[in-house]
Amino acid sequence: MISNAKIARINELAAKAKAGVITEEEKAEQQKLRQEYLK
Results as ranks from 00 to 15, higher is better:
24 E>G: 05
14 A>G: 04
24 E>Q: 09
33 L>V: 02
9 R>G: 01
22 I>A: 04
32 K>L: 14
18 K>P: 00
5 A>W: 06
24 E>K: 08
34 R>K: 08
34 R>Q: 12
5 A>P: 09
7 I>Y: 05
17 A>N: 04
19 A>K: 09
23 T>I: 01
35 Q>L: 14
28 A>W: 12
20 G>M: 04
1 M>S: 11
16 K>F: 03
16 K>M: 05
15 A>H: 06
28 A>G: 05
10 I>A: 05
9 R>Q: 02
11 N>F: 15
5 A>S: 10
2 I>W: 07
23 T>C: 04
25 E>K: 06
34 R>D: 05
38 L>V: 09
11 N>D: 07
28 A>V: 10
37 Y>R: 06
38 L>C: 14
21 V>R: 09
38 L>A: 13
11 N>G: 07
16 K>S: 02
25 E>H: 05
9 R>F: 02
26 E>C: 03
24 E>H: 06
34 R>S: 07
32 K>R: 14
38 L>T: 10
2 I>R: 05
14 A>I: 10
22 I>K: 01
33 L>A: 02
8 A>S: 07
32 K>H: 05
27 K>S: 06
1 M>E: 10
31 Q>H: 11
23 T>N: 05
16 K>H: 03
11 N>Q: 14
17 A>I: 04
8 A>N: 10
30 Q>M: 15
7 I>N: 04
36 E>N: 04
9 R>L: 03
33 L>G: 01
4 N>A: 15
11 N>H: 14
24 E>W: 06
13 L>I: 02
26 E>M: 01
2 I>Y: 05
1 M>N: 13
10 I>F: 12
26 E>G: 00
31 Q>P: 00
29 E>I: 03
13 L>Q: 01
26 E>R: 00
39 K>V: 11
36 E>W: 13
8 A>D: 09
35 Q>M: 13
39 K>D: 14
24 E>M: 06
39 K>L: 13
27 K>E: 12
8 A>Y: 05
4 N>L: 15
3 S>N: 10
20 G>K: 04
13 L>D: 00
7 I>H: 05
4 N>I: 15
19 A>E: 08
31 Q>K: 12
18 K>F: 06
17 A>R: 10
17 A>Y: 07
22 I>S: 02
36 E>Q: 07
25 E>W: 06
29 E>A: 03
27 K>A: 09
38 L>S: 11
17 A>F: 06
15 A>L: 13
39 K>P: 09
3 S>I: 10
24 E>D: 10
23 T>K: 02
23 T>V: 01
14 A>D: 12
6 K>A: 12
20 G>A: 03
26 E>W: 01
25 E>D: 10
27 K>R: 12
23 T>E: 02
38 L>Y: 14
12 E>H: 06
1 M>K: 13
25 E>T: 08
14 A>H: 07
14 A>W: 13
25 E>A: 10
17 A>Q: 11
22 I>E: 01
11 N>W: 15
20 G>W: 01
12 E>I: 06
32 K>M: 12
10 I>P: 00
30 Q>G: 04
25 E>V: 06
12 E>L: 09
6 K>G: 05
7 I>W: 11
21 V>M: 08
7 I>Q: 08
31 Q>M: 13
8 A>E: 08
34 R>M: 15
14 A>K: 09
27 K>M: 11
29 E>R: 02
39 K>F: 13
32 K>E: 09
1 M>L: 12
29 E>G: 00
10 I>W: 15
21 V>C: 08
10 I>Y: 14
29 E>P: 00
18 K>Y: 06
33 L>F: 03
6 K>Q: 10
18 K>E: 11
2 I>N: 07
35 Q>W: 14
35 Q>D: 14
23 T>R: 03
32 K>Q: 11
29 E>Q: 03
5 A>F: 04
31 Q>D: 11
34 R>C: 15
24 E>I: 10
18 K>H: 09
27 K>H: 05
20 G>F: 03
24 E>T: 06
11 N>Y: 15
22 I>H: 00
6 K>N: 07
27 K>T: 06
19 A>M: 09
25 E>M: 07
12 E>Y: 07
19 A>F: 07
14 A>T: 07
29 E>F: 03
3 S>Y: 04
12 E>S: 04
19 A>S: 08
39 K>C: 14
22 I>P: 02
9 R>T: 01
31 Q>W: 09
28 A>Y: 09
2 I>P: 09
20 G>V: 02
33 L>M: 03
26 E>K: 00
28 A>N: 09
25 E>P: 05
8 A>V: 09
13 L>T: 00
1 M>H: 11
30 Q>K: 04
11 N>M: 15
7 I>A: 06
34 R>V: 14
31 Q>E: 15
9 R>D: 01
5 A>D: 12
24 E>P: 10
24 E>L: 08
35 Q>P: 01
4 N>P: 15
33 L>W: 03
8 A>Q: 12
18 K>S: 08
22 I>G: 01
31 Q>I: 12
9 R>V: 01
26 E>P: 00
30 Q>N: 04
29 E>V: 02
29 E>S: 02
4 N>E: 14
7 I>M: 12
16 K>W: 02
16 K>I: 03
7 I>L: 15
14 A>N: 12
21 V>H: 08
5 A>R: 10
27 K>D: 05
20 G>E: 03
1 M>R: 13
27 K>Q: 08
15 A>V: 08
3 S>P: 10
26 E>N: 00
21 V>P: 04
26 E>I: 01
6 K>Y: 08
39 K>M: 14
29 E>L: 04
1 M>Y: 13
14 A>P: 00
